[in-house]
Design a binder for these strands. Structure first.
Length: 553
RNA sequence: UGGGUUAUUGUGUAAAGGUAGCACUACAGAUUUUGAUUCUGUCUGUCUAGGUUCGAAUCCUAGUAACCCAACCA
């Protein structure tokens, strides 16, 4: 019945559940821990969870998994909300695991009363030792046989702050010889005399992930609790707790997390890059964080399309960065306004053009008519790109060289007559003549040229700082390399151009605007911009067939 | 050496016993006032070995490889 739909395995599960009447509608959740910024991997999960609810008419909760007060902060809560909104999703409810601390405490008491939980006074080392290894069974703690009454008393004392951090824990009583390590009497509660960003100092005991997550899902009537592969072993415990507590049976499903070439995706590693100053912050445009991509000029649509294309499955993957860039260019190509900017300038002088004359030329803002037109000032002296001139033309060279003709975009065809060099051999000026009949849009010259180059009028140019970003890592998969992942960083990942020349229309650019600097790439204004100094970030380069031609030799 | 999960072209993902498809990448060509875009075309694949079947990526058996699990993290 769904032959042409090509559903992913989770959509198939949802459709089956819906068709069989297991649920009337579905509820999913996105459950970040507020201890860091969201990255592109999270956007896969966000698109999956929110996308599922949208597709099947359900709803999605945003739930902060804030069970560890020492690593969490409201700064992260705010950034996470911003990122999800920016991506274009709306949650039905904003919840916190900490909303359920009272309920969770009652659940723990229930388990104690059923003889399924006990207070253990062992140190963490003792607990680790008695836990055994994957190949050897663990051993029971001497505290495992405490009476229900004693456990209730002790657990309440834990809550009341009678004990110091680490003195006692509450554990589920399952099976110390279980083949699944997580079932060997997992810790449910630990003592942490720490200030929580939401509950303040109300609690000094906090539930572990396993004792909070499934129950939170259950409380919210989550039908499909979707997480990544490394949580597969947790599912058995997830189900065990729901069964013993006899609460709404949410179900956990696991998919493979996103990995991408030339970057790292673990929060720990990203935090390290920030803390050690390898990048300027979580939103450094080289970071794979959502805020980093946003600052770099990525669009929400491009990221959503990307998440759509990569699919959802259970095998380990390493997605080509080029697919993300394809999705980006696909979007930007349709929407970005075309403008001209010269990043590495050299002066071009039109010897037969009237001194001091300014001509306003009309240029289209993009391939789509709806983007409209603008006028650009043209004059006798122009800045052009240094790399668009070659003293001795290479084969298949379509740009400027002595004697060669080239079209100045939206202006005239010029012919290179001569050039000047300084004592170091650098080109300092190029002298051309222009063909007055070749004016763009009213060309009667009958001349056709192979190359078109961009330019900015010297007299009218504004200046700007332009930041060119490259991949942060030289290795395709730095996390999988030998040694420290930071050894594989690309030390040349940021190139700053202090004085690029930009066409005057760019001086009124806004933060949300997207531009294509013709022939140079896509750019956007950076938040560091001031009225005195504009700063542009390169979002992504254009595809470049010429550089490949050059490499071929 | 225990348990769990996964193997389809360079990458990712479809095909639920019946033509191995799609996208990205790469390559070639056409168009182009962006060496962009657009358009056309080309290349490479079912982890291995057996078996069942008219027919196997799919079912069976035995291997192999990768990843996850021994935090009072999530």
């Amino acid at each position: 019945m769904s032959e042409e739909k090509n559903l992913n395995f989770i959509e198939e599960i949802v459709e089956t559940d819906l068709n069989e009447g297991k649920y009337k509608s579905i509820i999913t959740r996105f459950p970040p821990e507020p201890n860091g910024y969201l990255h592109i991997g999270h956007s896969k999960s966000i698109c999956l969870n929110f996308g599922l609810a949208k597709k099947y008419g359900g709803s999605t909760n945003l739930r902060f998994d804030d069970t560890n007060p020492v690593t969490e902060d409201t700064e992260y809560v705010e950034s996470i909300k911003d990122d999800i909104k920016w991506l274009g999703f709306e949650w039905s409810n904003e919840f916190y695991a900490s909303d359920y601390f009272d309920t969770l405490f009652e659940y723990a008491v229930t388990l104690i009363n059923k003889g399924l939980a006990y207070v253990d006074d062992s140190t963490s080392e003792e607990i680790a030792t008695l836990k055994g290894t994957p190949t050897e069974p663990g051993k029971d703690s001497i505290y495992r046989s405490r009476s229900i009454e004693e456990n209730i008393l002790l657990f309440n004392e834990m809550k009341d702050g009678k004990y110091k951090d680490g003195e006692k824990v509450l554990r589920a009583k399952i099976d110390m010889a279980h083949t699944n390590m997580l079932m060997r009497d997992p810790i449910m509660y630990r003592i942490k005399h720490a200030h929580h960003h939401r509950t303040g100092d109300k609690w000094c005991i906090y539930p572990m992930y396993d004792f909070a997550h499934g129950q939170s899902d259950s409380i919210e009537n989550i039908t499909h609790s979707i997480c990544t592969l490394e949580f597969i072993p947790h599912r058995e415990l997830y189900d065990w707790l729901i069964e013993k507590l006899n609460i709404f049976p949410s179900h956990q499903y696991e998919f493979a997390r996103l990995n991408m070439t030339y970057t790292v995706m673990s929060k720990r590693k990203l935090l390290q890059l920030v803390n050690e100053g390898h990048v300027s912050g979580w939103d450094d445009p080289r970071m794979p964080t959502i805020s980093g991509f946003r600052r770099k000029g990525y669009t929400p649509l491009s990221i959503r399309n990307f998440c759509d294309k990569i699919g959802v499955a259970k095998r380990e993957n390493l997605i080509d960065l080029s697919l993300l860039e394809f999705c980006l260019r696909e979007d930007l190509n349709m929407t970005a306004k075309r403008v001209m900017a010269v990043l590495d300038p050299v002066k071009l002088i039109i010897t037969n053009y009237e001194e001091g004359k300014t001509e306003m030329l009309t240029s289209e803002n993009g391939p789509d008519e709806s983007l409209g037109h603008r006028s650009i000032p043209f004059g006798k002296e122009l800045w052009i790109e240094r790399e668009d001139f070659m003293e001795e033309a290479a084969k298949k060279w379509f740009r400027l060289a002595p004697g060669a003709l080239v079209r100045l975009k939206s202006a005239y065809i010029v012919k290179c007559e001569s050039f000047e060099k300084d004592s170091d051999g650098n080109i300092t000026a190029i002298h051309c003549t222009y063909i007055p009949e070749s004016k763009s849009g009213q060309d009667t010259s009958g001349i056709s040229v192979k190359g078109t180059i961009h330019w900015v009028s010297v007299k009218h140019a504004a200046t700007a700082e332009v930041r060119l970003y490259d991949r942060l890592f030289k290795s395709e998969n730095p996390a999988a390399e030998e040694g420290d992942f930071k050894e594989y960083m690309n030390l040349d990942s940021l190139h700053i151009i202090n004085n690029a020349y930009i066409e005057p229309s760019l001086t009124t650019a806004n933060l949300e605007d997207r531009f294509q600097f013709i022939r140079k790439g896509y750019f956007c204004l950076d938040k560091d911009s001031t009225t005195e100094k504009l700063v542009f970030n390169r979002t992504v380069t254009l595809k470049d067939a010429w550089s490949k031609e050059v490499k071929k030799g």
